[in-house]
């Protein structure tokens, strides 16, 4: 017992191929969560242009938002934001059911369902999000 070997996290890096549905769901939920909280801060920062707009020129707000919306990059990022939000919502619903002890036996299938549904909703929304940008 004098010596032992700590492999640390070495095996974690090589293990992603072995991840099962529940693990992927967790990874994606964490990732989308980080994106969403990051976006919330940026969102409030951009909308802060409403503060000068309220007393002076409304164009500060209207202009900032509309010029951002004119950028193709912003439109594409918005589609990304939508997919992130939709996945977080749908997997969040799945997690709430898991918390209530409902359907634990089909947790993998509900994860795949939330992925497919996210894909479908995002694809269906692309025209609306992109319209006028190109």
């Amino acid at each position: 017992m004098s010596q032992s070997y700590d492999r640390g996290l070495v095996e974690d890096f090589g293990r992603w191929q072995e991840f099962s549905a529940g693990m992927w769901a967790w990874v994606l939920h964490k990732f989308t969560g980080w994106v969403l909280i990051g976006y919330l801060f940026t969102h409030i920062a951009v909308l802060s242009t409403a503060i000068p707009a309220a007393t002076g020129d409304p164009a500060v707000y209207t202009g900032t938002l509309q010029s951002l919306e004119e950028l193709t990059v912003v439109r594409i990022l918005e589609v990304g934001l939508l997919s992130v939000a939709v996945f977080h919502i749908l997997n969040g619903v799945r997690l709430l059911f898991v918390d209530l002890g409902v359907g634990l036996g089909s947790q993998d299938r509900s994860f795949y369902a939330s992925l497919v549904l996210t894909g479908a909703i995002v694809v269906a929304s692309v025209p609306t999000f992109i319209s006028g940008a190109f």
Partner: peptide
């Protein structure tokens, strides 16, 4: 517990571990 279900999947005795943890949370 983050309900990753890893434990439930590897348990050689098929114990529904995640389900038990969730029930204790409630």
């Amino acid at each position: 517990c983050q309900t990753q279900f890893s434990c439930t999947e590897v348990c050689p005795k098929d114990i529904p571990l995640t389900e038990h943890i969730q029930e204790l949370k409630r």
